[in-house]
Each structure stands twice: as structure tokens, then as C-alpha cells.
Design a protein around this nucleic acid. Sequence first.
DNA 1: CTCTGTGCAAAACTTTTGCATAGCC
DNA 2: GGCTATGCAAAAGTTTTGCACAGAG
Lengths: 136, 136
Amino acid sequence: MNRTRQREVILQTVVNSRIHPTADDIYQIVRIKMPNISLGTVYRNLSLLCNIGKIRKINVVGQADRFDRANDWHDHMICIKCGKIIDITLECSPSIPELLSEQSGLEILDYSLVAQCICQDCSANISETEILGELD
Amino acid sequence: MNRTRQREVILQTVVNSRIHPTADDIYQIVRIKMPNISLGTVYRNLSLLCNIGKIRKINVVGQADRFDRANDWHDHMICIKCGKIIDITLECSPSIPELLSEQSGLEILDYSLVAQCICQDCSANISETEILGELD
DNA sequence: CTCTGTGCAAAACTTTTGCATAGCC
DNA sequence: GGCTATGCAAAAGTTTTGCACAGAG
């Protein structure tokens, strides 16, 4: 695998991002520094970086896939109101892969846990709306 | 919500299927009984049935979404060799939503756990291949 | 009769791919 | 120089949507 400027910038963009960007988000960000980069290159590199485990793909129901750093393992919660993705390092003993492996008898290579939640901000807004609703 | 023959057949097809079908799978199956049904109708109804909780959408990395019955809760494992989806009712105490809720302090509405595994059949085939490989 | 759902087709969106060229080692 | 990666553009795959008509209540 050759080392290219494009690949490096794409990796850094994902690792430094805190928004769990989609491929297109990454393309837009990288394009600021590197206007001639193509979306195809972004997809090719994201796919490659996933395969070698440098980044992770997060699957979100009904949306484009998102990407995330892979240096520390964590799970994800997505707010159903605003779509924000929140990282959580779920403590569970035995761990989820261990449980899966024990209970299925199969070799577990990876897993993805995405929960739907209501984030703090939206939770606050909902309460507000409810109160306002009562005033009608 | 009106009751239509299309909606009923689509729901039954998902509930009775054991292959965790994609929207297009469902379209192909339903078309046998109902040749004039359109793919748009299938998508519209699947989406609607998901929203009212009658069925569930399973998100698979890099593939079309799949659908599943929702009457009994279970998690999913997908074989990375053959793509087969295996149901598993993961036993975990406290439950995963409880853990998530405790550890995040947020309200958890739903969650999706998809593990990547190697199924029994593929596990057997790999061993075979490895043995054959040694003979070269 | 009214409102919702359907069929059809076009479009939108996401991702992959073929090909000639550029860049890395 | 040889092999890999890129840019561009076209295509493939999945899902959504507008519209006129059909069907449900």
C-alpha cells in the first residue's frame, strides 16, 4: 500500500472529527485543503482504511454510513430527534463479544451496537414543548 | 390508517420469512401473488410497518437494509463469508438497554446489535480449504 | 364522498467502477 | 519502470417522491 497525501488527509479528517462524518462530509472537508480530490478517492480510501482497521464504519438506519476513529473502542447512541451521535464506552462483564460467543458457539469477529436515544438537549426541548403545549 | 391487501401481504411476507429479506426480496415474493404491486408500495409499507413497530429494519454494513419480524426481540449475527443472518436472543443481565441507560443517563428507546461472525457451515468450509491449501 | 394508498416512472441519493493518467517507491 | 492510487465520469444499487387514479371506510 502506497502512502499518498490523499489517504493521509482523509484519515486525519476522520480521526480528528467529532461529528462522525459521512463520506460526503469528509469529501467536503478535505476539498477545502485539496480541491481536486474526487469523491471516488474518498470512498476508496475510507473503505481501505476500514479494512485495515484504522477507522470504523457506523451504520445508521436510513442514512448514509458514517465513519469514526477506531483507536478506542466505543459504542454509539443516536438521538432520534436531532440525529446527533453520542459515543459511549459500554461497561459490561462479560463483554458483549464474549457473551455472543458463549451463547452462539460461533467465532465473533466484530460487533456494532447502535442505540436510539433522546439526547440531553432534545430532552430539555421536549419538556419545554410539553409545558408550552399545556398553556394552549 | 386504511387496511389494504398490499399492506397485509407485505406484513405477512416479512413475518413468515426466515431469510431476513431485503425490500427487493419482499417485492419479488409478493409479486408472485400480486403481480401488479409496485416497489414503491413495498417501500412505503415497510417504512410504515417499521414506524408502528410491527416489523424491524436491520442495518447491515454495505448492503441493502433487511427486514425482520418484531414480535420477539432478538439480536443478529451476520456471517462475513456467506452473508447469512443468524438470530440470537442474547442473555445479559442487566439488559443492554438498562446498561446503556444507567451509564449514559439518557432515555434509551431502542437498540440494534449486529455482530459479525463465521457461521458453522463456513467455519467447516474454511477448515477444508486450509487443509487443501496445505496439500499444494 | 373524502381521504388514504397504489402503480408507475422519474429522480434523488449513496456507493462502486472503468479507464487514462499521475504519483510513489 | 512497474505497480498502485487518483480524478473524472458513468453506472449501479437502493430508496424516495410526484402525480393521476383506484380503493377503503
